[in-house]
Simulated assay, not measured.
Amino acid sequence: MAQVQQGLKAFFVAVFLLAGLPAGAAPQEVRFASLDGTPLTAWVFQPVGRAPTGTVIALHGCGGLYAASGARKGQLNARHQAMADLLMAEGYAAVFPDSLTPRGESSLCTQKIGTRRIDQGERRADTLAALTWAAAQPWAQAQRMALLGWSHGGSAVLAATDAARADVRAQPLQPVVAIAFYPGCSAALKSGYRMSAPLVLMLGEKDDWTPPAPCVALGNASGAEVNVYPDSYHDFDNPTGQVRVRTDVPNGTHPGQGVHVGPNPVAREQAYARLRELLRKAFQ
């Protein structure tokens, strides 16, 4: 873990210096405890030269924060970096907590649901702790906090905004908006999910990993905003790659047959345009 953190620090400082930006623009490594006591690390991005007008807690999916291969191996993956850049350009701070590395995991994607050592209990504890930590920082405004998550992190958004849970209701701080990209919604639907904050779902029409139907039903039951993007699979907002089949994923609508993942640039732009609108309204 220490090697990953040192490598990230050096990488970010080098990138910002080469771009002619001050080294202070590189993300800050911070540490705080999850509500379950786990010591967590997070990466904090802030806009250069101005105070952030809002803060987004960004929650990684089952593959964690970091790229597992390629030129970005060991660095924030392309989607997370692109989102950090987008949020900073909009004038917001972004906090990316790492729920996997501190617990000895690098990825959950190839583990069957039900056998994972890290589930939504841990993700909820981490998310609520990140909200509390960020709201206490001198550069943040507690009334301008948002949640954003992808896949397993999207499910964490649901877990952390479920007013049916006593630990969520007990939190004095609630986000002003919660945005979940292609979460798994079946568990929340069955458990009687109730929103503690305005919820927006961004779904792929053809997603065969976390299918949209349970999320559409959850939206109808809870009053959440639901956006379903045509001709789109899981990970449709990834800025790199192409649609492919991951045969190493044992879950999905056809267990054992793999799942489709990959970008749809049109859907990505539409979803990110809506995300910008939501955050601007929430942080005004």
Rank of each mutant, 00 (worst) to 15 (best):
V226E: 05
Q5P: 04
D237Q: 03
V176W: 01
P263Y: 03
L18G: 14
A23R: 13
A23N: 10
Q242L: 09
A135I: 06
A282F: 04
A164S: 14
Q284I: 00
S34F: 03
P172S: 00
V15E: 15
A58K: 02
R124N: 07
Q5F: 13
W209N: 14
A23D: 12
K73C: 13
A93V: 04
D207W: 07
A78Y: 05
V168I: 00
A68D: 14
G37V: 02
P239W: 01
E105M: 11
P211S: 09
H80E: 14
A156G: 15
V228W: 07
A136S: 15
L203S: 02
W139V: 05
S34P: 13
V56N: 05
A166N: 02
S232F: 02
G258A: 06
N264P: 15
L100K: 01
H80G: 13
L173K: 04
A23F: 08
P27V: 03
G241F: 00
R244T: 13
A68V: 06
Q28F: 05
R246E: 14
A84W: 06
L279D: 00
G154S: 09
G256N: 08
S186Q: 11
M1R: 13
E269P: 13
Q81T: 12
S107D: 14
A25D: 13
L128C: 04
T240K: 09
L201P: 12
A164E: 08
A271F: 05
A78W: 05
G104P: 12
H152S: 11
P183F: 00
V44K: 04
A129I: 00
S232Y: 00
L40D: 02
T38I: 01
H254A: 15
W133A: 08
K281F: 00
S34G: 13
A178V: 03
A51V: 06
M88Y: 03
D248T: 06
W133S: 06
A78D: 14
S232M: 02
C62V: 05
T55A: 13
Q46G: 09
G54A: 09
R116G: 08
R244Q: 14
G192Q: 02
S222H: 03
V30M: 09
L21V: 04
D207R: 02
L128V: 01
T55S: 15
A33R: 11
G154R: 00
P138D: 13
L148S: 08
C185L: 03
S107C: 13
Q46V: 03
Y92W: 15
A68Y: 02
T132I: 05
G114S: 08
S196D: 06
L108P: 11
L218T: 04
S107N: 11
L275F: 01
D98C: 09
G70V: 03
G54N: 05
L131E: 08
Q270L: 15
R280G: 15
